[in-house]
Amino acid sequence: MASLVGLAGWLAASPLTTAATPLVTARAWIVPALQVVHIVGIAVVVIATALINLRTLGLIDADRPQRQVQAVWFPVLACAIVVLALTGYLLIASEPARALFRTVFWVKLGLIVLALVVTGVQGRLARRADVAPPTARLLAVAAGLLWVGVIFAGRWIAYADAWPGASA
């Protein structure tokens, strides 16, 4: 926990963050505009992971090979994650204490890593056969639930209490 507080403090005070802060707060519309781009990125992740996971479960695109579905959507997912990381970082820079000093933000980051790993592993397992093995199906459901958790945690950043003693 102490190292997390240290990391949060370091990120908040890092030169890149302090340089970005005046840029993204220069006009009132910049933050909501970044949030819209962030939401569009989330929409891309939602549709890409939904199609990957539902294909594993055989609920969509059952007539086409796993490889073909995954070859389209994994790169799209990767691009969306990059856009989300960039806009997410700029949103943090607009108000560093808001996200960094709340437990739910770090829970969100953990869930993202977990969701990506589970989606990836599930994809690998499912690719071996056209009808995915039970393990892959189970992981596909888990991945879907993890992404739901990511969205919940993300929205919760706005409502959670900051760590005691944190500046804001």
């Binding site: 939401i39 569009v40 989330i42 929409a43 891309v44 939602v46 549709i47 939904a50 739901v148």
Partner: peptide, 11 residues
């Protein structure tokens, strides 16, 4: 609401 709207927007 965010979950629903991202599914609409994505699809």
């Amino acid at each position: 609401h965010v979950m629903g709207l991202t599914l609409v927007l994505g699809s």
